[in-house]
Simulated assay, not measured.
Amino acid sequence: MQLTKSQIIFDQQAHTYTTPDGVCLQGVTGMIERQLFPDKYSGVPEFVMKRAAERGSFVHEVCELVDDLGIEHESEEARNYQKLKESYGLQYEASEYLVSDNEHFASCIDKVYRESDNEFSLGDIKTTYKLDKEYVSWQLSIYAYWFERQNPGCKAVRLFAIWLRGSISELVEIERIPDGIIIELLSAEIEGRKFINPYAVPSVKTDMPLKYREMEQSIIEISEQEKYWKEQKKILMDGIMKEMVKAGAYSWKGESISFTRKKDSIRKVFDRESFERDYPGVYDKYLTDTPVSGSITLKVS
């Protein structure tokens, strides 16, 4: 059974969905955030959002190259995606498969895989620091609802998130939300009323001031960016070191930067543990009190 192609026109550059009659339709992301997760990205700086979007777009593109052209892309995410496909026996059917109710909403499903003649699995690629399974569940459940109506006789039998972020590569099966609840969510958005989420749980109690609670996602992203760029700098410096050794150079100068290579050497360090063991009490005799400024520790759970 072949999948039905939607008549909705998707402009990838403007990211808009338009009917053949010129009517603009809503995407799913904005609706989900308004109705279910209004504070999801509250306080996140624009540059962080932009960088995350660029990274996500890149990973989506290389995965399409793997699927559509069979290209073995050099990126870690592309290699890991290929391994996931092979490990789980995924039979690729389509990328960016557009589904719509043809009246109010439209969106593209990242990946469709064939299970049988009329059974399919739907996948959504995520590149976030943490995988938000609740968010993906709503997203893919909406897609599954439209997918089955756009393709009568077909069934979306499995939904899963494809989590790709550097060395992280996981295929996470996602629970489908019943169609009745999805219909109510869509109706609430169309009618301009607030959807009452039957799965909502009380907020976790916290003593953190509101200002910083709203910035939590931003802080996580900044922390992750710091870690990422430290790793990238190390990779760069290790590469430069190898090239300078190979060239026998100790100094390289560019227009705005320069590199200086230090020769191998031996540094003498004081073995405190051995000294304390051999001369008990002497070490403490020479300790002095030094003021130390207070600090905080950030732990991302």
Rank of each mutant, 00 (worst) to 15 (best):
T29P: 01
E148C: 14
S187C: 02
R55E: 11
D68C: 15
E170N: 01
N80G: 15
G248M: 04
E54N: 09
Q150G: 13
E276F: 00
K155Q: 12
T206W: 05
V245R: 12
Q13Y: 06
W252M: 11
G30K: 10
S258A: 15
Q217G: 06
F37G: 08
D124A: 11
D21R: 10
S107D: 09
L122D: 07
K111Y: 02
I196P: 00
I8A: 09
K130L: 08
L122C: 13
I196G: 01
E214M: 05
K230Q: 15
E77N: 04
R79H: 14
F275V: 15
D124W: 02
W138S: 02
Q91W: 02
F270D: 03
E77V: 06
M31E: 02
S42A: 14
K242L: 01
Y81R: 11
A188D: 13
F160Q: 06
R51I: 00
S121P: 03
Q225W: 13
E33Q: 14
R55T: 14
R213S: 07
D132C: 07
M31V: 04
K126R: 00
E33S: 10
G89I: 01
L298D: 06
S251C: 14
E231D: 15
I235W: 12
E191H: 15
Y17N: 09
L287N: 08
S6C: 08
